[in-house]
């Protein structure tokens, strides 16, 4: 049985879709069978970030409404054999997502894939709760910034209340993925520190993804950053996060912490 991951945050624009694609491609490069599922009905974007926008025929709503078979809606990645996308509908209303329908689709996917990664829409409404409902593990995407941290706190509360796991009285596994981290702003003391966010949200850290042009370049090309430029800083951070998801214990490195020679000579200290 595969593992179901929800990538969630409350706030929009923090990097959920980027992270879903990057983690999915990273896991698939380990030869594991991965499906990324877009739950952002009406505002789908995962297809674009994955570069599969012109290949969408059927979507999640079609499958839920019985208008297409799951196998007809799944799109196989052109670069990675074991990576698949289940797109969201762009035209249908999100009210077409039913609890039974979502459960049926997730159950079927779990049977076929090692990883089912659900890209949650922003907000705390039905779209977000459908996406998290059957998760085994939650990746809480947060930017080091006040409104994102507050919304993540809210989402953590929902994960502990509205998921099947929580309702069964089991512990919901939650991990913090700190994204768009800017080392120079942190150094200046104008961005929340990693430790601050960890202390406030009190969930374990999955990784820190630096703010980087490489992410924009990858999405322009329609490729997860872990495929477009595997040697770039954000890609390497995503690869590490994927390894931790798969259960490896790796030390966390904070982007930009390695002092450059300039800093050594002038003995600059981090704030």
């Amino acid at each position: 049985m595969g593992k179901v991951i929800v990538v969630t945050s409350g706030k929009g624009g923090v990097g959920k879709t980027t992270s879903t694609a990057a983690l999915g491609a990273a896991l698939a490069q380990r030869n594991e069978r991965v499906v990324v599922v877009d739950f952002d009905v009406g505002l789908r974007n995962l297809d674009l970030v994955m570069g599969a926008e012109r290949r969408v025929v059927y979507d999640l709503i079609n499958v839920i409404q019985g208008e297409a078979k799951l196998s007809q809606a799944l799109i196989r990645d052109k670069r990675l054999e074991t990576l698949f996308l289940l797109p969201a509908s762009q035209t249908r209303d999100k009210n077409n997502l039913t609890a039974e329908g979502v459960e049926r689709v997730i159950t079927e996917l779990k049977r076929v894939f090692d990883w089912v990664i659900c890209d949650s829409p922003a907000g705390i409404e039905s779209g977000a709760t459908h996406a998290m409902r059957h998760a085994d593990v939650a990746v809480v995407v947060t930017n080091p910034e006040v409104s994102s941290v507050r919304d993540s706190d809210r989402i953590i509360g929902l994960l502990d209340a509205k998921t099947v796991k929580a309702e069964r009285g089991e512990r919901m596994e939650k991990h913090l993925l700190l994204t768009r981290y800017d080392a120079s702003r942190a150094e200046r003391g104008d961005m929340l520190k990693v430790d601050d966010v960890l202390e406030i949200l009190s969930i374990p850290l999955l990784g820190i993804i630096p703010e980087s042009m490489d992410v924009l370049r990858a999405s322009n090309l329609g490729s997860p950053v872990t495929l477009a430029d595997a040697r770039s800083a954000p890609a390497m951070a995503y690869f590490d996060a994927a390894r931790r998801l798969a259960g490896e214990a790796l030390p966390i490195t904070i982007p930009g912490e390695k002092r450059g020679i300039f800093d050594k000579i002038f003995g600059r200290k981090a704030a």
């Binding site: 941290v149 507050r150 706190d153 509360g157 003391g189 104008d190 961005m191 601050d196 406030i200």
Partner: peptide
């Protein structure tokens, strides 16, 4: 620096919201 202020405001707010 503004980060310490952000941290303090969040701690107070979230204690209340939780």
């Amino acid at each position: 620096q503004s980060a310490p202020m952000a941290r303090e405001r969040l701690q107070v707010l979230l204690a209340h919201e939780r």
